[in-house]
């Protein structure tokens, strides 16, 4: 464990806490893409299938449980909660995310570290996570001005993978035979997708203005 990875995990945790706060405090999920939440639930379920077989550390197991449970809770809340689901922007959240699932699955079958069930599921979760934010970014562009908590949620979610890239660079230079090129290339793509969001987020912070993504 290094500071970059720990900071990345904490940033990821903060993004989930901010999202939970937004939904709990405002009893609304307006501006949040349910499709992105469903894709993230799939990412965690596919990536953490080894939670019961491979024990890495207490921290690792607890964080996996927190990520799976919180994301499933958010999806349930957006689908089933009487009050919250009424504020879901159903007509704006129209990204065809099934294509993202299919493309990630095909790519995982073609490009993986080993042709085993677990490795292919892991590669699938890595590729899917890289594109999982797309429905959310499209929804932000369509829904005009973005409320602060939603903006902060997306910001922390994008920042965490950027910190992971620093972690991979650090491990590359400090650990012999460290190679994680699938996660690294995918992480670069994932972080690059946030580039324009980060730009407008920075502008809104600098000008102390409301965050607004151009349509």
């Amino acid at each position: 464990m290094n500071i970059f990875r720990f900071a990345g995990d904490m940033t990821h945790l903060i993004s989930i806490l901010v999202l939970l706060l937004k939904i709990y405090a405002t009893k609304s999920c307006s501006g949040i893409s349910r499709k992105t939440q469903e894709l993230y639930a799939l990412v965690f379920l596919a990536r953490y299938v080894d939670i019961f077989t491979e024990f890495i550390s207490v921290y690792n197991t607890i964080m996996k449980i927190v990520f799976i449970a919180s994301t499933l809770a958010i999806v349930w809340c957006m689908r089933g909660h009487r009050v919250v689901r009424r504020s879901y922007d159903k007509e704006l959240d129209t990204f065809r995310h099934y294509f993202l699932i299919a493309a990630s699955l095909v790519l995982a079958l073609l490009v993986h570290e080993k042709f085993t069930f677990q490795e292919i599921l892991w590669a699938f979760s890595i590729y899917l996570e890289a594109v999982a934010i797309l429905p959310q970014l499209v929804l932000l562009q369509r829904s005009g001005n973005v409320d602060n908590l939603t903006g902060q949620y997306v910001f922390f979610l994008g920042a965490y993978r950027g910190l992971y890239i620093l972690n991979w660079i650090y491990r590359y230079f400090t650990e012999p035979h460290f190679s994680r090129w699938i996660a690294c290339v995918s992480g670069l793509v994932q972080t690059a997708l946030y580039a324009d969001f980060f730009y407008y987020y920075f502008l809104s912070w600098k000008n102390n203005a409301k965050l607004k993504l151009p349509a």
Binding site: D50, E54, I56, M63, K64, N167
Partner: peptide, 10 residues
């Protein structure tokens, strides 16, 4: 057990 080392991240 390089398998564990390669999947020690979240």
């Amino acid at each position: 057990r390089s398998q564990d080392a390669s999947k020690d991240e979240l």
